[in-house]
Design a protein around this nucleic acid. Structure first.
Length: 369
DNA sequence: TGTCCACGTCT
DNA sequence: AAGACGTGGAC
């Protein structure tokens, strides 16, 4: 190694960061007590796209339902998705479940410790693999999540979009150069905490930052500009489109749901049936329902987390005539497992309840033009 | 109320 | 490589 080391530009970075962390960092996160590999893994995957405050209640419920990797592996995917509903990016839950089965079947239920082994599991990339290795096994592995990218990009005024190949390579080098060979778990948490609580995207609290005097972005008055945003290419080639979700209730007020296909948006989740805009009347006619004549349609605060009905598939011919994009279904009586055909809303020996198409929920979709 | 866009992994 | 995935923070 010749000349100045990158990490020497901010003398004693790790020790100063850890000193800040000991006083101001987050030490009461649920996955820190106890800090097992399983809990760290689930938390890291939940945190991949979601903020701490949102994750905590989901994490607690998930741990109650699946206390260890074996119970997760033994569960049905549907039960896992149920605990994930509302968190978004549902491929994370499918990957989590698949990885649990790999750990059960190929590793005897024990977590691999090598970052390369972790990164080979579904849903675990380089950053999450190193985060688990550091947090769970105290390995001096560098992480580079969004928080760390922001801290390093500002500290060294790194130009370029952080996800661009060249910029990412530069940031990885910085991340590795700063990672100490001691207190790896604490250091990993510390640099994420710095980014999450002080070095925020908007209005960073530089006055409280131990590295304000070292920060190039700060010195140049460019904290609002760095890190650079994604290049805006081709935006004008996209437009917004509305799709329509049908809210259908039977005579007892129950909502009809459909299971979405296993991949794609909201994959594997129960959802309202979807129709092309304006297809409400046609769908209702095909389903033998009564359309409520006048708007306003009823809004849904959250369409996918609070329904407890299940449904069964109906023939593709009916889907088509009803103008439904995804498989429609019949109402399942949860306790007895008896289902109604949505087309007729009747079952043998029981009078048919009246069903009404009550509302239309419009969602935004960006599509290629 | 609406619009923009972050975040890590997969494809 | 560059876009999909989805929710929610920021404005």
């Amino acid at each position: 190694m010749t000349g100045e080391r990158i990490s020497d530009r901010v003398p004693d970075f790790a020790r100063r960061l850890l000193a800040w962390f000991d006083e101001h960092g987050r030490h009461d996160l649920p996955w820190q007590h106890p800090r097992t590999a399983y809990r760290v893994w689930v938390a890291e995957v939940m945190l991949q796209q979601t903020r701490v405050a949102t994750v905590i209640p989901y994490f607690e419920a998930f741990m109650a339902a699946f206390p260890d990797v074996t119970s997760l592996a033994d569960a049905d995917q549907a039960a896992v998705l149920e605990r994930w509903a509302g968190l978004g990016y549902y491929a994370r839950a499918r990957n989590l479940h698949a990885a649990a089965r790999v750990i059960r079947d190929q590793y005897g239920g024990r977590f691999p410790r090598e970052p390369e082994q972790l990164a080979a599991l579904p849903g675990i990339g380089p950053s999450t693999a190193n985060a688990i290795a550091a947090q769970a096994f105290d390995r001096p592995a560098a992480i580079l999540d969004g928080n760390v990218k922001r801290v390093l990009a500002r500290l060294y005024a790194v130009e370029g979009w952080p996800n661009a190949t060249a910029t990412a390579r530069q940031l990885w080098q910085l991340a590795e150069a700063h990672t100490p060979d001691y207190r790896a778990a604490d250091y990993t948490q510390a640099i994420m905490d710095l980014g999450a609580t002080l070095c925020t995207r908007a209005r960073p609290a530089c006055d409280d930052c131990p590295f304000a005097g070292d920060c190039h972005a700060r010195a140049e008055g460019r904290t609002a500009e760095l890190p650079h945003g994604r290049p805006r290419t081709g935006r004008e080639q996209r437009r917004r489109r509305e799709t329509t979700m049908l809210l259908i209730r039977d005579g007892a007020g129950r909502v009809l749901l459909t299971r979405r296909p296993p991949t794609g948006i909201w994959g594997g989740l129960w959802s309202l049936p979807e129709a092309e805009p304006g297809a409400e009347e046609e769908a209702a006619r095909a389903l033998g329902l009564t359309v409520r004549p006048e708007p306003p349609w009823e809004p849904l605060e959250h369409a996918f987390s609070h329904f407890d009905l299940t449904i069964n598939p109906v023939p593709a011919r009916l889907q088509e005539s009803a103008g439904l994009n995804s498989p429609a279904g019949g109402v399942m009586d949860g306790e007895e497992g008896i289902w109604y055909n949505v087309a007729t809303m009747e079952r043998p020996g029981v009078p048919a309840p009246v069903a009404t198409l009550l509302a239309r929920i419009e969602t935004d979709n960006e599509v290629e033009t």
